[in-house]
Simulated scan of single mutants.
Amino acid sequence: MSAPAVPIAPAVPAAPPALTVPPAATSAGPAAGPALDLITGRARTGAYGPDPASLRIALAFTTAQAVRHAGRARGYRNEVLSLRLGAAVGSCAVEPGELPADTLTGCVGATVDELLDHPRAAVRVAALDAYLGHCRPHGPAEGARPVPLPAGSSLAKSRARAAAVVGLLPLAGVRRVLVVGVVNSLLEQLRSRGIEYIPCDLKGGATEWDEPVRTDALAHLDACDAVLASGMTLGNGSLDPLLAHARATGKPLVLFAQTGSAVLPRLLGDGVTAVSAEPYPFFWLDGGPTVLHLYGGRSGRGGAAR
């Protein structure tokens, strides 16, 4: 899952209180930040396709998940808001229980343009993701390389995805990775390749190997050679400082995205090195074959999707 997950009791020790949301946060949730605003502005000026005011969202839904993989000591819960536009589904992970009951009814029938001004960042992200997935679907024309995930258990598919995501990191010069949004299968892949990591997540807690999870990712940026971050950083306001650091230092920034999977490739070459884009339905929803769309990385074309 691309979102920082919420531990399930009792297998997971009680997590420490989450950090205060970024200063721009409101009662409607954290602001998404300049990166989302930049791409939204481009969409409104016709850079990607038709006027967002001419397109309406027909369907809104949420997906809630609880998982504890066989052989793993810890389990998680996740929730995702999704909006459908034509054949495309745009998504943004949220904290379980965060969305008011009337969120879905307030989205259906609204234009994409109206939802791009919604007070909730999750709605804005999902609306932009749906719009871009509709206008600029993943594929070779956008610089994406399809990578099939074979049918299997949720753990088998999680590990297959992790191998593809970690494979987007450069082979040379990366000894320690800052992981923002802890996914144990990703950490397992880094361990298998002898790469050190610093796990970070606003929820805190511990990894599958009882390593402490840091809650302040920015404090550890200088200690790492690369950043591997969840797409949920787009929705919770924490992506922009990571982008600024990558732009200033030239460090690789690789994103694994279920949240904003069609949005984040627009940042390739502008701080983002590579993206693993995984639109709905995600690997954890389907035991059959599914597909990742990889942008950039060791054999990809940086910036092709912009």
Rank of each mutant, 00 (worst) to 15 (best):
D222A: 15
V21F: 15
A141Q: 14
L149N: 04
V147K: 10
L19I: 06
D37E: 14
G205V: 09
R176D: 04
R124Y: 05
R74K: 13
L171W: 07
V80S: 00
A160R: 04
A60F: 03
L285H: 13
E278D: 12
E211N: 00
P119S: 13
A88I: 06
P281E: 12
R120P: 09
A32S: 15
T249V: 09
G139T: 07
P96F: 00
P96I: 07
L83C: 09
L218T: 06
L83G: 06
V108L: 10
A3I: 01
D225M: 06
G152N: 05
R44E: 14
E211I: 04
L234E: 01
G204P: 02
L190F: 07
Y48H: 14
A305V: 02
A305G: 09
K251E: 01
G97W: 10
T20V: 12
S153K: 14
G86S: 12
L268W: 05
A217D: 08
L85V: 06
H245G: 01
W284C: 00
A163I: 09
V179Y: 07
P146S: 14
T111R: 11
A262W: 03
L218I: 10
L228R: 03
V291C: 08
L234Q: 02
G194S: 15
L190V: 02
E142R: 14
A93L: 01
E278K: 01
R175I: 01
P7N: 09
S185C: 07
G235V: 07
L243C: 01
